[in-house]
Design a protein around this nucleic acid. Structure first.
Length: 270
DNA sequence: ATATGCACCTGTGTGC
DNA sequence: TGCACACAGGTGCATA
């Protein structure tokens, strides 16, 4: 479900609510996510205070005093909600961490593709090898440009590769390529310099706009307060097969590749 | 290096 | 109403 804009929206909400709070209880009802939660390790949360909530790619990093990080990935269907401590357990609520101050963070994930662990940052193997953050400025654009020119893969697969650039998923890959005017099936190394520059610009622009809209909610993405995002009303191509292109009125096409759908305008994207 | 298939799970929508 | 099937925002591994 969640890509960079959704995870960033959740990060902001968690940061606001959790900073300075102390965990007082950890309850795991179902440890079997894609990899099982080490429950004993996770219980080391108890008694620790949150110093900040950060994001790396699609991972949330809840920093705790003492140098530990509570790492959460939401997979396809994961959600984090901030609730009153007395709120009833919801469906598929696998983990609940209660904080002083009378509230709790609930992790709900029907498909259980998420990840949750506690560890020192340098031991979190999930974070090593990730590409640069596309919104961090600096050299991320230059790096992405170099990577795009250096591979024969299809450009959409390159954008989805977290080692090349961190945080883009299936929705925003299609949206970025529409904005850049490039078909998802184009071979990356054959892109012109102008096209590469347009992809770099579009990456920033699309992600910034989506964050400003607090993410894309089809049916089941909500932020920590249970609020929907609004970027679904601004999608140009994703999930719009057969509908009119917002620019040229041609019919949007859908293509399936390796089990994943791509959407593009056959007229605007070359 | 690249491509493909599959596995991990549950829920939802569609067509019969 | 039931049933079969396709598909879903992600990742990781095994195999060619």
């Amino acid at each position: 479900m969640p890509e960079l804009p959704e995870v960033e929206t959740i990060r902001r909400g968690l940061h606001r609510r959790l900073r300075g709070a102390r965990a007082i209880a950890v309850e795991v009802r179902e440890p079997r996510l894609r990899r099982a939660i080490d429950v004993e390790r996770l219980r080391e949360l108890v008694g620790r205070r949150v110093s900040a909530v950060e994001r790396r790619a699609k991972y949330l990093l809840v920093r705790l005093e003492g140098g530990l990080v509570w790492l959460v990935h939401l997979g396809m269907s994961g959600r984090l909600l901030v609730l009153p401590a007395a709120a009833p357990r919801g469906d598929h609520e696998h983990v609940r961490v209660t904080f002083d101050g009378g509230f709790a963070v609930a992790y709900r994930d029907p498909r259980r593709f998420g990840l949750m662990k506690l560890g020192r940052e340098e031991d979190l193997v999930e974070l090593s090898g990730l590409g640069p953050e596309p919104l961090d400025g600096g050299l991320a654009g230059e790096w992405l440009g170099r990577k795009l020119r250096a591979t024969r893969r299809e450009v959409k697969a390159v954008l989805l590769d977290q080692r090349v650039v961190a945080g883009i998923g299936n929705i925003y890959a299609s949206e970025i390529l529409f904005r850049a005017g490039v078909r998802p099936t184009r071979r990356s190394y054959r892109l012109t310099r102008v096209e590469v520059a347009r992809i770099i610009d579009a990456t920033r622009e699309v992600l910034d706009l989506a964050i400003a809209s607090r993410g894309t909610s089809f049916s089941d993405y909500f932020d920590v307060a249970g609020e929907r995002g609004s970027f679904q009303t601004r999608l140009a191509v994703f999930d719009r097969a057969g509908q009119d292109c917002v620019r040229c009125r041609a019919a949007i096409k859908r293509r399936v590749h390796g089990g994943r759908s791509s959407f593009y305008c056959p007229r605007c994207q070359t």
